[in-house]
């Protein structure tokens, strides 16, 4: 029997200032091939990873934000964004990229990948996982 574990990638760092966000995303993409029950959490500065309108042309670094939009194609469709982390940073959902996926079980209807959760709900989500990835 193949083991299916609940994997959560916990993103707590902003992009570009350090490489953690990008290299974490690389694990998510590779990990998608392993057919685990995958979700991503965006907590603390991690919420900055999925900001709309990222333009890195002035810093000569690759803009990797489009990869988040492609996660649905990798069947990575559970993205939990913490409400308190957004609020502390003066952000609302409108400041984030609209991330969606096509639900094959529902006639390929387009659905939101992002679920906004409270800090208490995030704590519960962490608790429900088998493996927590931190970068």
């Amino acid at each position: 029997m193949a083991t299916i574990k609940k994997f959560m990638y916990v993103n707590r760092k902003a992009p570009y200032g350090t490489v953690y966000a990008l290299e974490s995303l690389e694990v998510v993409l590779i990990g998608a091939a392993f057919d685990q029950d995958v979700s991503l959490a965006f907590v603390d500065d991690g919420v900055y990873q999925i900001m709309k309108g990222q333009d890195t042309s002035g810093i000569e670094v690759k803009n990797f934000s489009p990869i988040y939009s492609a996660l649905g194609d990798y069947e990575v469709t559970k993205l939990y964004v913490e409400k308190e982390s957004m609020e502390e940073r003066g952000l609302t959902l409108d400041d984030l990229m609209p991330l969606v996926y096509e639900d094959e079980d529902d006639d390929w209807a387009e659905k939101d990948s992002i679920t906004v959760v409270s800090r208490a709900e995030m704590a519960e989500l962490l608790e429900q996982q088998d493996v927590l990835f931190n970068f």
Binding site: L126, D130, L132, N134
Partner: peptide, 8 residues
């Protein structure tokens, strides 16, 4: 414990 969360 069942799992480890490392707050880096």
């Amino acid at each position: 414990n069942d799992k480890v969360q490392n707050w880096l």
